[in-house]
């Protein structure tokens, strides 16, 4: 394949990944790595580098809009970023020692988990129990816009949430993904933040998490501009278009398609990992 054809195909594929990722809320990064490795036979390290770059682009683009809406809890974000950046730097430090086959299997499992989560219904809830003592000391409690008023919420299980965020950071670096599903799990399910606060704060943190390992990978040569540039531009354009047409799109149907795609990619990654073909 010539560079021209490679650039064109990768850009179009990334555009589709960004579009579907933004319409379904699952993020395009999950699909970029399997697409590059399985379809375009790109080395896993280049694929991870390019994917991280696209994750920074989309999360920064989206966070710019969300922060202004008042859902993002900036204190929770900064506090948990301590965990995700430490996790990401740990992940980047050990990435060179983890065999490719193990990474592929891990990737497959995370993909399956994300697909599983996307099929579950979302429940908006607010915890009214007294906050965890750490949350009180760190002033993590907040308010968010609901039913035309600012509704207060409390924050639970801070140590468990912090630890899960460290894991999210490690996985983000090892697999080149935003780890949005795990971040939302930690905030929504464990720390009992309202769902909308969890997703927007997760998005706020994803760019910082990805930047931590992307810096290390840049110096290690994982980021090749010939791959990362079309991926970044394609995903970004797709995500921007997705955000524009989100209100008009039939999301349930798209979500089913995307879940099927994610499951197929998960199976492919698991197979390649176990058979050592990657």
């Amino acid at each position: 394949m010539s560079l021209l054809a490679f650039t064109a195909f990768v850009a179009v594929g990334s555009f589709g990944a960004g579009l579907l990722g933004s319409l379904t809320g699952l993020g395009g990064g999950m699909v970029v790595v399997p697409m590059l490795t399985v379809l375009f036979h790109v080395d896993l390290r280049y694929a991870i580098g390019a994917s991280l770059v696209s994750v920074i682009a989309t999360s920064s683009g989206a966070a710019a809009a969300y922060v202004r809406e008042g859902y993002t809890n900036v204190r929770v974000g900064i506090f948990l970023e301590v965990a995700t950046t430490t996790g990401a730097l740990t992940g980047a430090a050990v990435a060179g020692f983890v065999p490719t086959s193990a990474l592929a299997v891990l990737f497959g499992l995370v993909l399956l988990y994300t697909a599983f989560r996307s099929l579950q219904s979302v429940q908006e809830h607010t915890s009214t129990r007294p906050s965890h003592p750490w949350a009180t000391r760190l002033r993590l409690d907040g308010t968010y816009p609901a039913d035309g008023a600012m509704r207060p919420y409390s924050v639970q299980a801070v140590p468990t949430g912090f630890f899960l965020m460290f894991v999210a950071g490690v996985l983000s670096a090892l697999l080149g993904i935003g780890s949005g599903a795990i971040k939302v799990l930690a905030m929504d399910r464990v720390m009992q933040l309202p769902f909308k606060v969890s997703t927007t704060t997760s998005n706020f943190m994803i760019g910082v998490t990805a930047a931590a390992s992307a810096g290390v990978y840049l110096h290690r040569g994982y980021i090749d501009p010939a791959i990362a540039t079309p991926v970044m531009l394609g995903v970004l354009l797709g995500a921007l278009l997705g955000a524009r047409i989100l209100s008009r799109a039939r999301v349930t149907w798209l979500r089913t398609i995307f879940t099927v795609v994610v499951c197929a990619l998960a199976a492919e990654m698991l197979y390649k990992g176990i058979s050592g073909a990657l």
Binding site: L3, D43, G221
Partner: peptide
């Protein structure tokens, strides 16, 4: 544009 695009082997080092 016409150069072959081969990223199968990692040369990042």
């Amino acid at each position: 544009a016409r150069l072959p695009a081969d990223f199968h082997v990692f040369r990042g080092g």
